[in-house]
């Protein structure tokens, strides 16, 4: 009975995966188009209120507008509709998913965050920091407290809504990379410990839930939500996968983490460190820079 109820779940999951992919790619494309147009206008000497400087262009990422490029739900619906377009014996999403397989929950969450960030549905992080400082001042928090666990939590919280492409997310990328390496090498080698098989048991889900509690405490609400969503998607068999790791990680996530880490590494190598800014967390993001947005 339960199986009959949940039969459509993997089908819905597949279409949602495709729709989120389309939404993220479309948001990136529209944003690039918009920035390119403004840059051309500024080069042509016809600066307007929106397109006068690079700072303003970057800032536009954190300002929700009225066009389709700033409406993530519209882009998602467009993705859903495109996914149902019949192509041959199946639809467009079926062709795409033949190559990507079922996407994991974290990938879907990151794709949605990418769409949100590109659509300007995140507020500027500097303003969030300013508000946090005002709150701290209002609460008469002492410097000592700020520098202890409160500072850690505040720092983590400030990072919590950085866009998915931000360099500040390097620790989670390392986690995906290590997890993927461990999983794929043991599962595909046919020898040694079978780490993938461990995913049929409930232990990894409990550990992930524990991590969610920790992340929630630390103020990393986005990662906490991803962890909880991963566990729920596995428990409810939303993607059809029985193995926890199929819900927690996929090659797209590992691959994009590798590419971003390599890019970050190259930037660190070729660019001299300037000033005392905490580059580990806040620097090096060309798109966001000092304007890394915070979710509204």
């Amino acid at each position: 009975m339960i199986a009959a109820i949940w039969l459509p779940a993997p089908w819905a999951w597949s279409h949602l995966s495709f729709a989120l992919l389309v939404a993220a790619v479309a948001a990136a494309g529209l944003q690039a188009w918009s920035l390119g147009c403004r840059w051309l206008r500024s080069r042509g000497g016809s600066e307007d209120a929106d397109g006068g400087s690079v700072d303003q262009m970057s800032e536009s990422l954190s300002k929700p507008g009225r066009g389709i490029a700033n409406r993530p739900l519209v882009l998602l619906v467009v993705g859903l509709v495109l996914g149902f377009l019949p192509v041959g014996a199946t639809d467009l999403s079926g062709h795409w998913l033949a190559y990507t397989g079922e996407l994991s929950f974290p990938t879907l969450a990151y794709l949605w965050l990418v769409t949100l960030a590109l659509c300007g549905r995140m507020t500027d992080r500097s303003s969030a920091t300013k508000k946090a400082e005002e709150r701290i001042a209002a609460e008469s928090v002492t410097a000592t407290r700020i520098s202890s666990s409160g500072a850690i939590r505040r720092t983590l919280a400030a990072r919590s809504a950085d866009p998915p492409w931000s360099d500040s997310r390097w620790p989670e990328r390392i986690v995906w990379l290590l997890l993927g390496t461990l999983l794929y090498t043991t599962a595909l080698s046919g020898q040694g410990p079978d780490f993938y098989r461990w995913g049929y048991a409930s232990t990894p889900s409990w550990l992930t839930l524990l991590a969610a509690v920790g992340l929630h405490w630390a103020g990393r609400w986005d990662l906490a939500a991803i962890a909880v969503g991963t566990v729920l998607s596995w428990q409810l068999r939303l993607s059809g996968a029985v193995n926890f790791w199929d819900c927690a990680i996929d090659p797209l996530l590992v691959g994009s983490s590798v590419v971003m880490l390599l890019g970050q590494l190259v930037r660190v190598i070729i660019r001299p460190v300037v000033g005392a800014t905490d580059h580990r967390f806040y620097d090096g993001d060309s798109a966001a820079g000092d304007k890394s947005p915070e979710l509204a």
Partner: peptide, 15 residues
């Protein structure tokens, strides 16, 4: 916070 706490609670019960 509420949303995540509820999610953790639901996942714990199902688990």
């Amino acid at each position: 916070r509420r949303f995540i706490v509820i999610g953790i609670g639901v996942a714990t019960v199902i688990g």
